[in-house]
């Protein structure tokens, strides 16, 4: 049985009386400890799938199951301890008026978990942030440091599943490498399951075992990592995406 099971998911938004189909009839399943990637260009609905899992976007048809159980509305505290998310923009996902300490201890307070002091310090160590960052405000941190805080926050409740919404696209290429390394290390240490969204095929290839190419809210093609490396794709769109990604790389 898969840890994440999505069947025929559709998400429809109501935009000023006009129905916008953000996601149409998408199915995917991710076994425990696997990393699954969603690739597509802007407007392909890849982020909407993550938001639908968390209850931030409405499910208009289909079902989402986590460890065999259909998700409930509202998601509730038990869900929070199982599934957490890292957002794309580290400048927008940390509360600007909370210190790092407050940001990291908030989930502990919500769930009544004790020893907050020790746990916050441990969390900073885990994401390789110096302890001196503890009482700073987000605006005193760089983008990469903020994203580390966001990752630490997502891990405070020790979830099994991490939803990653373009976690490095707002970062410099060099900081992206460090962040990806951090995520890979944490995944190995904690046996996490990743569902990762990115527009960058190379990033997905680096992090994920399997991936789903999406376009206009629909699934185009599912590929394994080996398929991708050998350029064995069936659809024209997946190939175009592959060519554009490979083309911008200077070989060396």
């Amino acid at each position: 049985m898969s840890l994440i099971e999505i069947q025929n998911l559709s998400v429809t938004f109501d935009a000023k009386g006009r129905a916008v189909h953000a996601v149409r009839d998408v199915s995917l399943s991710v076994p425990a400890r696997e990393s699954f990637g969603l690739v597509g260009e802007s407007g392909s609905g890849k982020s909407t799938i993550l938001r639908a899992i968390c209850g931030l976007a409405p499910i208009s048809a289909g079902s989402i199951r986590i460890a065999g159980e259909a998700v409930r509305d509202p998601r509730g505290k038990a869900f929070a301890r199982r599934v957490q998310m890292v957002f794309q923009d580290p400048y927008a996902s940390l509360h600007p008026r909370h210190t790092i300490d407050r940001t990291l201890s908030e989930p502990l307070a919500i769930h009544g978990i004790g020893k907050a002091d020790a746990r916050v310090v441990q969390a900073l160590d885990d994401v390789s942030l110096d302890r001196s960052f503890r009482f700073r405000y987000p605006h005193q941190l760089s983008g990469g440091q903020r994203q580390r805080v966001a990752i630490a926050r997502a891990l405070m409740l020790e979830p099994e599943i991490l939803l990653l919404d373009e976690p490095t696209s707002a970062l410099d290429a060099s900081v992206q490498a460090e962040t990806l390394n951090l995520l890979a290390r944490l995944r190995d240490e904690r046996g996490l399951t990743f569902l990762m969204v990115s527009h960058d095929l190379a990033v997905i290839d680096h992090m994920c075992d399997r991936l789903l190419v999406m376009q206009h809210g629909q699934a185009v093609e599912e590929l394994t990592r080996d398929d991708l490396a050998a350029a064995r794709m069936q659809t024209d769109y997946a190939r175009a995406l592959f060519d554009a990604s490979a083309d911008r790389m200077l070989e060396g």
């Binding site: 060099s174 490498a177 190379a202 290839d205 050998a230 592959f242």
Partner: peptide, 20 residues
């Protein structure tokens, strides 16, 4: 050289990316 090598590549190894 660090900037050159820190990007992941399709079909590359999955080991840690060289950090800058």
């Amino acid at each position: 050289r660090g900037l050159l090598n820190c990007l992941p590549r399709i079909g590359g190894t999955r080991g840690a990316l060289p950090s800058l």
